[in-house]
Simulated scan of single mutants.
Amino acid sequence: MRADPPPSRRTAGNRLLLAGAAAVSIAGVLLIGLGVSGALGGGAAPAPMAARQSRSPAASPKDLPGVRASKVAGPMRAARPTAVYIPSIGVAAPLMELGLDADGAIQNPPFNPPNLAGWYRYGPVPGQRGAAVITGHLDTRTGPAVFARLKEVKRGAQVQVLRADRSVAVFVVDKVEHAPKRGFPAKKVYAKLRYPGLRLVTCGGAFDRQAHSYEENTIVYAHLAAPYYPGR
Rank of each mutant, 00 (worst) to 15 (best):
K151E: 04
A102D: 14
A23S: 14
L34Q: 13
R80L: 09
P81R: 05
G33Y: 09
L224N: 10
A39L: 15
L16M: 12
V29A: 13
A51V: 06
L193Q: 04
Q160G: 01
H223F: 11
P227I: 04
P87M: 05
Y190S: 03
A93H: 03
G197S: 06
V24E: 13
G104T: 03
A59F: 13
L116H: 05
L100S: 10
A21T: 02
N217P: 00
P81E: 07
F207N: 05
P48N: 11
A51K: 09
Y85L: 15
V67T: 02
G156Y: 01
K62N: 08
G197A: 14
V84H: 13
P180C: 07
I86G: 01
R68Q: 10
A39M: 12
A23Y: 08
Q107T: 06
P227W: 02
Q158S: 00
R166D: 10
A45M: 14
R166K: 11
G118L: 05
D4V: 06
G123K: 01
R15M: 07
R77W: 01
V201D: 11
T218M: 14
T82Y: 08
A12K: 11
Q160H: 03
V189F: 02
V91W: 04
M49I: 10
T202D: 10
Q160F: 01
K154Y: 01
P65K: 07
A148Y: 04
P65N: 14
G123W: 01
G197T: 09
A45I: 13
V146W: 02
V24K: 14
R77H: 07
G205F: 08
R199D: 08
V133D: 00
D101S: 06
G231H: 11
A21V: 02
A12T: 08
H223N: 13
A23W: 06
V146T: 05
P57F: 06
Y195M: 11
A69S: 12
P144S: 07
A131T: 01
A191K: 03
G136V: 03
V84W: 11
E215S: 15
V153Y: 02
F184E: 10
R2S: 15
L224E: 11
G204N: 11
L198T: 06
G43D: 13
R80I: 08
A157G: 02
G99N: 10
R55Q: 12
G197R: 12
G156S: 02
R80K: 09
P87G: 04
Y221M: 08
F111Y: 05
A206D: 10
P61A: 07
Y195V: 15
G41M: 09
S54E: 06
V201G: 12
S56A: 15
A105E: 10
V159M: 03
A12Y: 14
P7E: 08
L116A: 04
L98M: 12
S213P: 01
Y229I: 14
T11F: 12
G183Y: 09
K154Q: 09
R2N: 14
R141S: 13
A45P: 09
Q53M: 15
G42K: 15
A58L: 12
P75Q: 07
Y190R: 02
G130H: 05
K188P: 04
A23P: 02
Q160S: 04
Y221I: 06
P124F: 00
V84F: 10
R232A: 15
A39F: 13
S167P: 04
A79N: 11
A78H: 11
S25V: 04
L17I: 14
A148L: 00
A117T: 00
